[in-house]
Design a protein around this nucleic acid. Structure first.
Lengths: 250, 250
DNA sequence: AACTGAGTTTTGGTTCGACCAAACTAGGGC
DNA sequence: GCCCTAGTTTGGTCGAACCAAAACTCAGTT
């Protein structure tokens, strides 16, 4: 019976732990209101009868837990956690992992995986409004073919819609994450209207497939679109990668 | 031009930031070896010419970033980050969010989404070994029908295989996460051999579909299996939820 | 009355020095 | 060679103090 991670038998709890727990519950219960500043460190040390050291440690922990936002010299601000909070918490870790090109690939592959599922779902369940949004995005896309920067923006926006169609607050958070993590690799890619045009057509293919309620076609269009986009980035990496992993074993 | 999150123009960097950056690079570069203890706080304060307070803050930050593991009274241990690290970092946040039943649902839905994709992929790309593993798991599953605890374990194991078939280190980490987060809700579910039997047959249906290389059937079997499992949990929540969201709009 | 700006108070960031208890180490007794 | 004890190292906590930036106060200007 492995216990996964919860092997935490506190041998000697830190003083800050109690404070963290208390503040945590106050935030979650709404006693400490969202967007409102935390009490000052000196107040807290009096209330909990602990040293400022411990107060600061507790606040730091809360900050890393995403329950408060603390800019260097400002009063920390209470923040009720949401899925975005998670992304922020993982941000640094992911960035470290992205030092390794293989990490980038893993991440990008996961994005393809997610979006394949999303377009399938879109093809099946997209509402009229969803489709209308896609159409708009597609046209904005088309209009921006000659403006690579703008195209990049509308490109992202087009994909984002699928994450909304997921109808789950987790997906938009994931999209935002992919954006901020994968973005840099795209930014240093040379721009070319011809490439924009190709991508526009890829988007259109996806859109058309969704219009026809054809999940397989939509997924296929999406997959080849993203595979091609990966080639465009041309991430220089020793690992020889092919994005269709059908044949790879082990 | 929204900037997502990177609006960090340090107005007043913390003293610890530099130390964190330096130690971070030492860990990533391997200068500080994985699994090996960090230098003592006193050593670090001499080397960087800072107070122990700052050293401790830096270490705390590294700990939250997942680059070191620090148990209360022990020397922090260097840890090269992997995808598991991320899960650990998000753990507390997620747990907080899971206080809200709607959060649990979102999470569970995302699991369904992921696994639908995974079984589809398995149906297309599973190797002989994969299928052999599935078969084994399935049989272990069958043998445990009368032992609810064991069945639970083999159940998890059966599903885990799909995450491995994803051929991306991200997926196993996700599976582990789902396990630790969703687990509690399943543990308090009453056990019944009849239910185990039903789940076993559901698993078999998935397995059969994969054998026949039929992604749609596999996905369908998986989806209804997990939807049913959700009902079993019978999470008491005011939100009236139906897991097939085909009709729901907005 | 609203706005501005200088002066005061508050507060977060950092240092220093000290103390304690637990972890580590070394030495001595069996 | 093993175990127990004494001494040392080290992480956890405290408290007092200082600095600079933020927040606040309030008189003075328009």
């Amino acid at each position: 019976m492995n216990k996964l991670d919860d092997a935490r038998q506190d041998p000697q709890p830190r003083a800050a732990d109690g404070v963290v727990a208390e503040l945590e519950s106050r935030i979650l219960s709404g006693l400490l209101v969202d967007k409102q500043p935390l009490p000052s460190e000196r107040e807290l040390m009096e209330e909990f009868d602990i040293s400022r050291t411990v107060v600061r440690e507790a606040i730091a922990t809360l900050s890393n837990r995403g329950l408060v936002e603390s800019k260097p010299r400002f009063r920390p601000v209470v923040r009720k956690p949401d899925f975005d909070t998670i992304i922020n918490a993982t941000d640094t870790i992911i960035r470290n992992m992205l030092a390794d090109p293989a990490g980038v690939l893993s991440l990008y592959e996961s994005r393809i995986f997610i979006e394949r599922g999303l377009v399938r779902q879109a093809a099946t369940t997209a509402t009229k409004e969803d489709i209308s949004l896609l159409k708009q995005a597609l046209e904005a896309n088309k209009d921006a073919i000659d403006d690579s920067l703008e195209f990049f923006r509308t490109d992202l926006e087009f994909h984002r819609i699928f994450y909304d169609i997921g109808r789950n607050p987790i997906f938009p958070a994931i999209h935002k994450a992919y954006g901020s993590w994968l973005w840099p690799y795209w930014e240093r890619m040379k721009r070319a209207p011809s490439r924009n045009e190709r991508n526009y057509h890829a988007h259109k293919a996806i859109y058309d497939a969704i219009l026809e309620r054809d999940p397989d076609a939509a997924e296929q269009a999406l997959a080849s679109h993203l595979a091609r986009a990966w080639e465009d980035v041309g991430l220089t990496m020793e690992v020889s990668v092919s994005l269709d992993r059908g044949a790879s074993d082990d």
